[in-house]
Nucleic acid binder design. Sequence first.
DNA 1: CTGAAAGCGCTTACAG
DNA 2: CTGAAAGCGCTTACAG
Lengths: 339, 339
Amino acid sequence: MNEETERRLTIDDVAKVAGVSRSTVSLVLRNSGLVSERTNIAVREAAERLGYVYNRTAAIRARHSYLVGIIIPDLTNPFYSELTAGVDQILNDSGWISLLGNSWESPASQEKILRRMHEQNVDAVIVCPVTAADHTAAENLTRSGLRVLQVLRRTEADTSYLGIDYSHGVALAVDHLFELGHTDIVLLGGDRAYSAATERYEGYMSSMRSHGLEPKHVPCALRRSAAADKVRELFDKQNRPTALICFNDVVAIGAMATLERMGLKVGRDVSVVGFDNVADAEFVQPPLTTVDTHARQLGERAAMLVLDSIQNGSSIAPTTIMETSLVVRDSTGRAPSRA
Amino acid sequence: MNEETERRLTIDDVAKVAGVSRSTVSLVLRNSGLVSERTNIAVREAAERLGYVYNRTAAIRARHSYLVGIIIPDLTNPFYSELTAGVDQILNDSGWISLLGNSWESPASQEKILRRMHEQNVDAVIVCPVTAADHTAAENLTRSGLRVLQVLRRTEADTSYLGIDYSHGVALAVDHLFELGHTDIVLLGGDRAYSAATERYEGYMSSMRSHGLEPKHVPCALRRSAAADKVRELFDKQNRPTALICFNDVVAIGAMATLERMGLKVGRDVSVVGFDNVADAEFVQPPLTTVDTHARQLGERAAMLVLDSIQNGSSIAPTTIMETSLVVRDSTGRAPSRA
DNA sequence: CTGAAAGCGCTTACAG
DNA sequence: CTGAAAGCGCTTACAG
């Protein structure tokens, strides 16, 4: 940390050593083809020798900041960390870098992050909006004049959207359980307050009806412990379901743990389907049948959409929907025969 | 996205509307106490009304960039996402924002990220260095003239360091198993190529010896699947251990899944101890006994150390070590009696 | 192909 | 307390 003593080198220092003008150094550093091979080399050598580091912050007239924001509700959820890793990967490959913001589902926090990213002059922001029904939060996404891509959750904000076909995903789960002979299939989790939840709900309802089955939705917070509590309630009663479709894998893992503790064998006494196909899904006991939402690829796609738009100065494709796929493991099995 | 048409507002626009000079607006926006209450309000109102957003990028003469980099080897590992969430939380609370970089354990990638963060003029970078024994990578950490805090892994680079007392953590695990009557205790995972691994190894060795037990280390890559493979090998033979201390929870979860598949009951036939106390540890079957490394608090502490140093213009405390604690759950039990 | 000059949107002494 | 001027380290027309 010798910033205090030695000031940071500038483009002028490089110019002096290379024996060219400041403009020329600037052109070389930005890989402009305009400069002769000889000058090019001389400048690069000088920069290297001096240990010069480009100061992008000072390039306020440049077209891009090479910063893209990514705002998610909970980095601690493995689905979101996969998604974020996907975004980061693609951004890095193209020379951009990610500004991270974890909103913890708080509209106020999302606001603060969004504004700070704007202040940092990001080229775009990829945001998975908070679920709280906060109109201001949604509006601010558009009002800002920023390039915004909403992911996973569609709010009223009129921005581009990259989503998942949740409805179809849930239908895959219902079909799978129906084929195994299940009829009492509960949807566990979600509160229908935001698109990712309502879409699942609608997919569940229509798919159940098309099979002539009675739907039953049990809302539940998206934490392992909340799921554990709900399941205890649900299975304490007489009319136990034979199958659970969980809002996501985190809920499913919480549910399974409780079922096993209650002495119910998952995959035999009760079938459980998760959603997301998180890394652990394969390694819990029993391995979890789940709807894969391809988090990593989703993140990668988000970054690509945004970079495309930045580099071409075009707007982001208004709507992109990605498909899910069912991964069958041991947490689902034939419905137990009614005694 | 009307940047194309409407240019971004500047401090001068605000000044004109508020009827003051550019300097005054600048002072107000930075909460300088020098400005009168009346002027303060007038300027803020004007800014608000116009929808002005401060352009921090242009403040190249300002003392801070309000950017702090965080470089980790794998965001997908729940330990690191907790850590990152902790860092992000504290930074946000203080008005800073995190630049994320996922190195995937690649020295080249770490280099690239580090340089890009430097170019973005970060106030500091918190880095969990790649494990590959790459001297250049380590040296570059110091050479850069950046404010750097190494976390978890200590390289040759002469920077400040925030770590965990791994050695003591492993000793806690060995003691616990010893008290349960175990004598054949294997350390699974780690390759001793970097500090976080050697420290665990040394803690294991000395603790085993102090109990008069024969140590046995089985190296293993830190992925669930690699752990699964190693365990299959290890338990295919005659001389099976009765207990496993795993490098981290991810390894433990992979190991447990395999053991159960082989028909061994974890907590009865074999005891398994993890490391980290990841969120899932409580919810796998059986719940995992593990050494809690307090990832979230570690991240928070890292951010605090760095912010302190930025705000006071001082250097970061050279060494900080945090303690672990043992969380006993059901994956460990009394050693099976020898037939 | 290269350089001198003006400019980006802020901050920082310096006067008053 | 406030403003005019110079400055930060780059980029961008514009000449030649």
